[in-house]
Write a protein that binds this DNA or RNA. Structure first.
Lengths: 133, 133
DNA sequence: GCCTGATTTTACTTTTACGTAAATTTTTTG
DNA sequence: CAAAAAATTTACGTAAAAGTAAAATCAGGC
């Protein structure tokens, strides 16, 4: 059995529905060089690899990365490990990005901890008032 | 002994240096109602509480939250737990924000895992080449 | 008390990430 | 094949988050 729904190609509107964005947005990402759908005539055809790139892009957006930063991240995945000097550079870039992400995770954990405190206070106050949750 | 460097007031330039932003940025946050420094004449004086708010703002920015979203988060902390209905609403808002943050953390963990893989491949390739890290 | 540098206000500009509209294909469907 | 629906190109518009410039004002040191 093949994996579920492994389509050859996706149309632009299929992808706008899946990711909840407009055609303008997807074409914008193409203009920015983040994806390169092939063409049949003028119409764009998106391969599964384009779809995976879109998933990466959306994830980057959720994390507050700019298009430029998302481009960097994508290029890290693309880079074919070549010559030794390049490899060292690539590792440097990996380390940088990971540090950024670790900082973000710290920020998130702190914020969640604070929100937990607020919630606890609320629940305590509600218990005092004799209110059910 | 008092805690280290507990100043009464900070000037705008002290804060720009500490947070690595411009005066324009700090005034912009004031215009947006995120902070409310007091005035001596026309000059702004920032209290430790304003400084703490700026820390919250910067953290929000690092996480890719918009000014509007940062305003929401700040207002969660400010909200004095009042009446029962309000408390329930506040808890709802806490839960929403926390869900957003948990999603972000998932995104981060996935991205870090992928970066780790890239790094491993690089290191493997370098070992093949007989190159030291 | 004046000079120098910091601060403020006002207003126009810029960049990013798309939105929107119009005119033109292109594709699909009856 | 004709009509409708979908996709494309081109171009201008916009909101958010500041940048920047100019002119005026203020504060602190000598």
């Amino acid at each position: 059995m093949k994996s579920p729904e492994q389509k050859q190609f996706y149309t632009i509107t299929e992808l706008t529905r899946e990711f909840g964005v407009s055609t303008r947005t997807i074409r914008f990402y193409e203009d920015e060089g983040l994806i390169q759908p092939i063409r049949r005539g003028r119409t764009r055809l998106f391969k599964p690899s384009d779809r995976r790139l879109l998933m990466l892009i959306m994830r980057g957006k959720r994390l507050g990365f700019s298009i430029a930063e998302i481009r960097e991240i994508i290029s890290i995945y693309k880079e074919p490990p070549g010559e030794s000097g390049q490899l060292k550079l690539l590792i440097q870039r990996v380390i940088e990005k990971r540090d950024q992400l670790l900082q973000k995770r710290t920020d998130i954990d702190e914020t969640i901890a604070e929100l937990d405190q607020v919630e606890e206070q609320c629940l305590g106050r509600m218990a005092e008032l004799g209110v059910g949750t």
